[in-house]
Design a protein around this nucleic acid. Structure first.
Lengths: 233, 233
DNA sequence: TTTCTATAACTGGTTAACCAAATAATACTG
DNA sequence: CAGTATTATTTGGTTAACCAGTTATAGAAA
């Protein structure tokens, strides 16, 4: 198991080295926005690594919007300027993997905003989706079973109803880790089922009533316990 | 140019189809958390697509934390439960690409939080980094040149000082698109240089003084124009 | 000299064979 | 029969050849 983690880190480390070399190359060759990078074959030869590694590094930089690969044409630097390019690559290289506290902190921030936006923008269809998620959660919680999944799906349905694609995506990226950490640290113990149902229902009612202030307040109440759990440890 | 977009959409569409089939397979075979997926070769044969496509689809689900590939062993479903798995894959398949308004809305939310956290948690080293970014921005802005890059790098240095790895990463993911949209729509026109320098300096001073309330207020003032621009169009 | 066309070289993407490690199956030993 | 060593198979990852579209080049025609 430790070996696995080591392998991943080695790979990431190797990928970061290649990313650093790409950055150096952009500076050395004075490549400006829209300019073409040398071909993957040349880069792999120049860096002394395999072409797959180069492709993976490029893909990562493409994810962050710094490069853009066009089939049968080449890889181009994005239109963000060389200064921002340098700064952002430095940041990416030093980026550390998120801890649990950081995840929860971000989640609360996003939830307080998405619930407000959802109460303002939700369509009838959104409301129906939220209601279905709420019903599924209630049923599972009443039966005494673990309802962490249904809990989070309820919150995701609110994020979707917020009408903000970016926040929706961010919620999606942090939810799996949240679920696993919750079950790992036993954050949501049994016995809170009734309380959870009540709070979820109040949030739903506020969204239905299109009352953003109330919705945000109910969400804040809902997170008060988690908030304490996170900041007192 | 339109052809290019079409190609991308076709690829994404094809990838989404494969992701949907993987979801069906998990349900059909009643795969539970920790269970092993069929090998990539079998999946490619069963789905009638190339193995590379299967690998790409798996990689995407791995990014969202739903699958985990282990070399020479297999691909495993994450420990989040089948209910959450189904819900999240549905959300991922329906996920739309973020629009400019959604990006700005999210950015403002993140900035108001990171500047507050930065003023509470910043180290001396963080403060030094922010100051350097501020100086670079001031120098560029005074000279009358376009300083969008230095502007955003200043804000990224604050995000880094917030001590929240998740928010830092989210800021990194939206910044390139913000820069490109700013220059595309000419959001930051010339003549606001002096005003921008003043506002940035006030934000910096509040962070230095470790005054979270003031820092947030100054950031809000800084965004008031952008806020209007975004919500009145 | 300029413009157009045909050809050659180059590009990112795809494919199938190959690799080393992990696992399963088998054979051997006590 | 139990336990261990050995072989065979399966796995995700890697590699190098190949593909189809793009771009640069060269030459001919005007």
């Amino acid at each position: 198991m430790k070996l696995e983690v080591l392998t991943v880190n080695e790979n990431q480390e190797g990928q970061n080295i290649i990313i650093g070399k790409i950055k150096e190359l952009i500076n050395y060759k004075n490549l400006e926005p829209g300019d073409k990078l040398p071909s993957e074959r040349m880069l792999s030869e120049k860096f002394g690594v395999t072409r797959s590694n180069v492709r993976d590094a490029i893909q990562k930089l493409e994810f962050y919007g710094l490069l853009k690969s066009i089939p049968q044409s080449g890889t181009f630097v994005a239109n963000i300027g060389v200064v921002a390019m340098n700064g952002m690559i430095d940041d990416i290289l030093r980026l550390e993997s998120p801890d649990f506290k950081s995840l929860v902190e971000t989640r609360i921030l996003l939830e307080l905003k998405t619930v407000r936006l959802a109460s303002l923008r939700r369509t009838k269809e959104d409301l129906q989706n939220i209601k279905e998620a709420l019903d599924a959660y209630r049923e599972k919680a009443i039966s005494g079973e673990d309802a962490v999944q249904e809990d989070l799906l309820f919150h995701l349905s609110i994020a979707k109803a917020s009408g903000n694609a970016t926040m929706n995506m961010f919620m999606l990226t942090i939810t799996p880790q949240i679920i696993m950490d919750f079950e790992k640290y036993h954050v949501c113990d049994k016995g809170q089922a009734v309380k959870g149902i009540k709070e979820h229902t109040e949030i739903y009612n506020a969204i239905e009533a299109q009352d953003p202030v109330l919705a945000k307040q109910k969400m804040k109440d809902h997170f008060s316990l988690l908030y304490q759990y996170c900041y007192n440890s």
